[in-house]
Amino acid sequence: MDPASILRRNFVNASGRGKTALVMAHGFGCDQKVWRFVAPAFEDDFRVVRFDYVGAGRSETAAYDPGRYASLEGYADDVIEVITAAGLREVVFVGHSVSGIVGVLAAIRRPELFGRLILVGPSPRYLNEAPGYVGGFERPDIEGLLDLMEKNPSGWAGFLAPIVMKNADRPELKAELESSFCAMDPAVARQFARVTFLSDNRDDLAKVTTPALILQCADDSVAPEAVGRFMAARLAGSTYHAMRATGHCPHLSHPEETIAAIRGYLAGAGAMPTEGNA
């Protein structure tokens, strides 16, 4: 696939100045718009690259191949292809939630593409595993999630978004577009949910050579603190940062603290070349 097709397929958007690229990857359940409160803060010092996984947001859903995306490796393919197509190397990869693990998998396969991994609320395994691993959920909980998704089928609206976009002269349609933000084809969402919440990537953590920052929220019911600690213990050369922010989406609920945490880590990481940065 040629670079232009990949950039189109994943609806890749780049902004900002700087020699180093900050590649921001959304988690399950939403799309690249979740970075809107955090991304602008880095545009003076970094090339900020945002994208949608195939099947999410405004990616080309027709490119969704259930075989390729049957495991998180397929999503790691997306990350590697986006970085390569954009002609980037040694990027700072910021991945929220499941994208933390996707970034880990991509960095294991192509370490030369990654300078730093910043993992926001990552979890290598959402299910509890005896003995001693508390992921936070049991299998019926995940089945319950799939059931909830099926009973909230508004995701179909997402397919209308590109059409609605063209109706600039009909502002009343904008509200409809906005409300289809985190829309996804229900079948795609269902498979992505399964892959996300049933994968077990605990054994992959030891294979990572890229330095990583783990941003752990307080009272995160999706990726509890014990899981963040587990990540930090298994990732060699990782930094664990406990946030005051609560919940699972600090980039949405506490953008300032999230920006400061990322900035602080990158400033401390002397090896990061940030041209244009005072």
Binding site: G29, L145, L148, M149, N152, G247, H248, C249
Partner: peptide, 12 residues
């Protein structure tokens, strides 16, 4: 299940 759904989809 609702906790996950709220955190990953509803709240965003």
């Amino acid at each position: 299940a609702s906790r996950i759904y709220y955190q990953v989809s509803l709240f965003p």
